[in-house]
Every structure is written in C-alpha cells, then in structure tokens.
Design a protein around this nucleic acid. Structure first.
Lengths: 172, 172
DNA sequence: TTTTTAATGTCAATATCTTGACATATTATT
DNA sequence: AATAATATGTCAAGATATTGACATTAAAAA
C-alpha cells in the first residue's frame, strides 16, 4: 500500500469527479488518526488507575487552581467541547467512583457545580500525574519547545475555525 | 475564566505535586478538543447525507484508486487506527445502507474484502465530495500551503511516536 | 406583572469506541 | 504429519459520543 492518503473523507484528488484538496485531506485524516491513537495510548498509560482519557480530561479540568468551589456542567462542556448529554454520563461514572462531587449551584438552582472530591485529588496527584508526565515525554519525543509552540498554534487556528463553523450552524 | 490550560489530564503545572509540562499539556488538550469538534462539525457538514465522520473515513478509504477489489478489515483497522471490533459495527451499518460490500477473500477464507458498492461510489461523488471540500475550505481558512504542510509534519511526528508507544505495549 | 423565550442538566435512542473472548483458518514449530 | 501458535472477523459488555426531548428554572419581552 503506497502512502496515498485519504482523510476523513477524501481520496487523493486523483479520484474522478471530486475536487478535494489533497493537503486538507491529509491534515484532517492525520487529526482523525492522532485522536484515535491518543485515546488508545492515553487510556493505556493510565490503565493501572482505570481512568479513561475522557475522565482524565475532566479530572484535569477540575484539578486546576480556582476550581475548588466547582464548575458548572455547561462551562465544562464549553471547555472540553463535548455535549452536555455525554458529559452527564461521564460525570455520573466519576461520581460513582467517588472522584467528583455534584452540588447544586447557590446562584442557579438548575445548575450543578462539579468538583473533585478528596479522593479525586489523591488519585490525580498520586496515581495519575507521574503517568501523564511519562506519557507526554514518550509521545512528544523529538519535539523541541519551538515545535510544541508551533503545533499548538496550528491546533489553535484549526480550533478557532471549527468553533466558528459550529456557532454558525447553531444560528441556523 | 482565564485561559489557563489543562490537557487531557493536567493542570498548568502550578498544581502542587505534579510535574507535567505545560506545553505538552496544552498540545494534547488541543488535540482532544480539535478531535471533538471535528467530529461534530464534520458530521454536521454531511448531515444531508446522514453519513457520520467515521463512515466518511471508511468510504474515503475505499474510494481511493486501487481499492476496487477491496481491502481487508485488518488493513482498514491499521490504516484508520481503530479497533477491529469497532470497525465491524461501522461496516455493518454501511453494508445495511447498501454503501459497501463484504466478500470472502479468495486468498484467506477467514478474511473479508470490503469495497464500495455502486451506490457507495455515487454517494461519494455526488453527495459527499462537494460538502467535504466546502468543509475543508471553511475549517482551513487562513492556512497557507506551507501552514498545512507544517501542521501535517507535526501530526506525522506525533503519530509516529504514539504508534511506537502502541506497539511497545503490544509486546508486553 | 404576566407571558414568552431561553437555559440547565438529565433521560432516551442510536452510533461509535474500547477490551476480552471465541470459532475458524492459517502459519510456524516440532 | 501432527501439534502449537497466531491471525481473522464477529459477538458481548461497558464506556463514550451525538441529537432530540423534557421538567424546571431563570431571563427577556410584552
């Protein structure tokens, strides 16, 4: 198999009848593949903790400074770019594991504040952090600081564009 | 909320007790976010066709030159970096929609060759391609050719590293 | 003040995603 | 040739992901 690329949806442009940019193709296909393997290797990196990458993202968000009182489900969905419904499911499992707490917001009784429990903080610091750091080291081997900064810049640009697309569709 | 970053699993490094590189953090969190919103906006871009991004990836792979006879499930999993079991489900739904055909491989009776049906080719050319091209244009607005090439380069590097991680875990 | 509109988080249905397991077939080893 | 190991694709179970819907609450409009 030659290194002919598809993306999530295109052939190399040699396909009759399509006018799909080959580089765009390759870029999005690479994003698709990277995401797939990130979840696989990331979850594997934390397998001793039984924390999945999606739970990792949430715990990491809650472990930040300033999150001690909690953050609403809506703010979390906007930060992580996942749906409210999906987050409900993941949060329920984290709560069942005793890693987070859900409390009614004092300013809006419809809203729930999500925060790490003491157990969740322990798991974050004692079990997860070193494994995460090791995972990053291995996955980013050969990346200089400048490389990381540039890669982040491209991700940011892509994210901004897709966010605009997302918001555009909400208005219709 | 300030632009303090987490990644899929880390705080900004200001968190006591963790030694997680902030840039690595941001990079992986951005990958996580981009993947999330790519699936959302990508599926939305094709909503008239009712083709999801995962089905898009498979159809795109099958639409390439040289795939007319078909490709094995195993080769597809290795190309898309998804699990065999997951692919089975997605392929079954594509087959049910009449977009692909599954035939027994002439060289290995355990193996199935997966190929686009005539209907699948029609959907690819008539319904999907223009929408995909438009999606790419919008999502990659502001990206020069050099930008795309550089972004792809970083994706490639990341992918290579994570693939190595993946293969390392298989040997243990 | 009352009515209308929008927001919140959860439930439901469907699709996608993983790992573990398995029957069958193929390949490698004895 | 016989046995052992590996590969193939699917089934099962559980986690994640979406959209649509909904009861309740808050904000905006009349």
């Amino acid at each position: 198999m030659s290194e002919q690329e598809i993306s999530i949806g295109a052939s190399t442009g040699a396909d009759t009848g399509t006018n799909i940019d080959d580089l765009a193709n390759r870029l999005f296909f690479r994003l698709y593949q990277c995401a797939n393997i990130m979840h696989k290797t990331g979850t594997r990196a934390l397998e001793e903790t039984r924390i999945t990458t999606q739970q990792w993202a949430i715990i990491g968000a809650l472990a930040r400074d300033g999150m001690e009182e909690g953050i609403s489900v809506g703010d979390l969905t906007r930060f992580l770019l996942v749906s409210r419904q999906n987050l409900t499911g993941v949060l329920s499992r984290l709560e069942a594991q005793g890693l987070i707490e859900r409390v009614v917001s004092p300013v809006d009784s419809r809203s729930r504040l999500i925060r790490l429990s003491a157990k969740g903080r322990d798991v974050w610091r004692r079990d997860m952090s070193a494994k995460i750091a090791a995972f990053y080291d291995a996955a980013l081997e050969g990346f200089s600081t400048t490389d990381k900064i540039h890669a982040i810049h491209y991700f940011d640009k892509l994210l901004t564009n897709m966010k605009r697309l997302d918001q555009g569709s909400e208005e219709s």
